[in-house]
Design a protein around this nucleic acid. Structure first.
Lengths: 158, 158
DNA sequence: CAGAATTATTTCAAGTATGAAGTTTTAAGG
DNA sequence: CCTTAAAACTTCATACTTGAAATAATTCTG
């Protein structure tokens, strides 16, 4: 096989790891920068927090509603966390919990009309903000990057 | 003076915004996935949390030490947050605060010997983990991606 | 130099966030 | 049936995080 020593065997070598570590740090800094800015704008313009907006955005994609555990899985946050955030949104009248026929354990969460209306207002601005912040990345490049990030997931979790 | 209507004026159009919004969501999910996995491994293997490790990593790059405000700026977290995390690391004997000659407001934070030793142990594993998780991304692609993410920063902040 | 502005940090209340333990409900295996 | 297991949530202790207000030291300005 290959015994020239010019390249390593199948798995990642140290040089590659260093490169990937740098990439991870940049990725983390990029998302923190964007998150911080979005949090600031959501707060000042809509008195809304990022976690609550995230839940509303997830619910907006599913008019039928989502289980608490679906929200947890989709948003990649813990079950206990979802409970607290949804409680807050219920208090604010933006979402409702309803039990499902035949299973009294589950509770389906849906946007209320008020929630949907508010979400649409915010989402319009939100999309513009993100477009603005990522404006330095070209169209094709954005598509390319999104493709890479989509396919990388969970390669390490057997 | 483009009046053909075939293309938009200088700034981003709606289609581009949609593309960038998708990119942002992928970016966020990617970093959350990696963060969650790293948190799990740091906890189980070293009984260490991610924020504490982040502070130690920042301090490791600066043997002279860093001001609290430097840490805040570099890690993109609030000042109050840095205070709590550093307090914890001081309690654990991993870092020390020392005041700077001539300015009694500031406190310089440094890794202790124990902190440095522990950091090096963890960092070795940490780098391998990241290399593993990002293993699906090729070497040149990682470099390319890192370049994009580096240069995009703060385009919107005047 | 005195007062005002700035800088560096801490404190605090409120809001996330996790993971473990507990509750209620449903499903599964004898 | 009747235990035992599994599933869906909630509750709780602990930890992180922000942003605003407080504290303290330094610098600026008239």
């Amino acid at each position: 096989m290959n015994d020239t020593g010019a390249s390593r065997s199948s798995d990642q070598n140290d040089l590659g790891n260093k490169e990937r570590l740098r990439l991870w740090i940049r990725l983390l800094r990029a998302s923190r920068t964007i998150e911080n800015e979005l949090r600031l704008r959501l707060k000042s313009r809509f008195d809304m927090t990022l976690p609550r907006f995230d839940v509303m955005a997830a619910l907006n994609r599913e008019p039928e509603g989502l289980l608490m555990s679906d929200l947890s899985r989709f948003l990649l946050v813990s079950n206990g966390n979802v409970t607290v955030i949804v409680d807050r949104l219920v208090t604010d009248g933006l979402v409702v919990r309803s039990s499902r026929e035949g299973d009294r354990r589950t509770s389906i969460v849906r946007l209320t009309d008020a929630g949907l209306t508010l979400f649409r207002q915010i989402a319009t601005e939100h999309e513009k903000w993100v477009g603005e912040m990522l404006g330095g990345i070209g169209d094709e490049e954005a598509r390319h990057l999104a493709t890479i990030l989509k396919s990388f997931r969970s390669n390490w979790e057997t």
